[in-house]
Simulated assay, not measured.
Amino acid sequence: MPASNPMMDSPSHLLVPFAAASAPECRALLPEMRLPNLTALLGELTLGTSLNGDDHEFTPPHERALAHTLGLGLHDDGAIPWAAAEDPHPDRPQAWFTPCHFQVGMDQVTLYSAESLGLSDDHARPLFEALAPYCQEDGITLHYASATRWHAEGEPLRHLICASLDRVSGRSVADWTAPGQADNPGAQLIKRLQSEAQMLFYTHAINDQREAARLPIINGFWVHGAGAVGHARIASGPTPIVCDNLRQSAINGDWATWRKAWETLDTEQIPSLLESARSGQMVMLTLCGERHATTWNNASPRSAFSRLGQAIKTLRGKTPAWKQLDTL
């Protein structure tokens, strides 16, 4: 998924990943949440498109919704080429490599990405420089974009199926390994590179420093956003701002912090959309859970029947926002 941009291309379209989650602890919180501005905004808008899926898809709803909005078209699950989409040469096969800590437990291996570990450039760059020559030998050129994102380019990346980092972070790796890749040479090559990185990083001096500082070692990397853009983009609407305020607390399973982040979002960012909607400006809101992404808008004039329904809703009281979140 593209890196978040704090500047809005379209101030009137807000896309919110992790607006709800499937964890029972999150679902239990929803009825207690008071989001008055979101409730009022949804009351001003009309239900638009929905992208439906399930918790087990490699591509989460917010990535599918964003790809649709950016005109990247429809892709197989786990095959949205985010790295290529951000490159001046999107027709070339590319991917993101994110350094990770793989925690080995009694019955599973859990991934924690560099983003959640606060990996610094001082620690990330030496590991990158150690891995890059091994990638080059296998036809993959590695470029250092940031501590948490290494840009990879090469033909072996063209047909990879990869689980989004947002799906696998904090979870068992076994649940997010693409099936049916045994005959894919690129997938086999990546698997071998991951094994080589594990051995290479394990003995690296940077990890000695991290262990001494009681920090999780970096013992591998995760590939995501792989592939190439094989067609011209056909943008389907204004580029939204992606609000990542809820992301890390949801990935960490910290639902108390997630709830506070939603309340802050309701206080600080939703009111401007509400004001725009009430003044007659076009407004779009896309809320994404772990299964579905749903968009509300005021793009089309309401029919007389719709206006009557809205009047009845107003008399009865507006539907609390949490009930909409519970459907995601």
Rank of each mutant, 00 (worst) to 15 (best):
E290W: 02
A152R: 03
V104Q: 11
L15K: 07
I217Y: 01
Q103L: 09
T46C: 11
C26L: 08
C162S: 12
Y144V: 03
E115I: 01
P179E: 13
L41W: 05
M33V: 12
T257S: 15
V223L: 13
T148I: 11
S195P: 00
A28Y: 04
T98C: 11
Q94I: 01
L35Y: 09
A250N: 07
L274D: 12
L111R: 05
E153P: 01
A293R: 03
P60T: 08
S300M: 14
A197E: 02
R92D: 04
R247L: 11
R167A: 05
Q108C: 08
S10D: 15
L142S: 03
H231C: 02
K260S: 11
A84G: 07
N219H: 06
P60F: 01
K191Q: 13
K318W: 04
T203Y: 00
L215K: 14
G43L: 07
A114S: 15
A130T: 14
D9Y: 05
D77V: 03
D166V: 00
H224D: 15
I251T: 02
C100D: 05
P216V: 10
H62C: 11
A79L: 04
M33T: 13
W255K: 08
D9G: 02
E275H: 12
W82F: 09
G154T: 06
A23F: 07
Q94C: 11
G237V: 11
D9K: 04
P238Y: 05
A95C: 13
I312V: 15
L160V: 05
D77M: 07
L315Y: 03
L189Y: 01
L38E: 03
G230R: 07
P88Y: 10
M7I: 13
Q108F: 04
T257R: 15
G139A: 07
S279R: 15
N252A: 15
I217F: 02
S10I: 00
A304S: 12
F97H: 06
E155G: 03
R167I: 04
A178F: 11
D107E: 12
T319N: 06
A311Y: 03
E155Q: 15
T314Q: 14
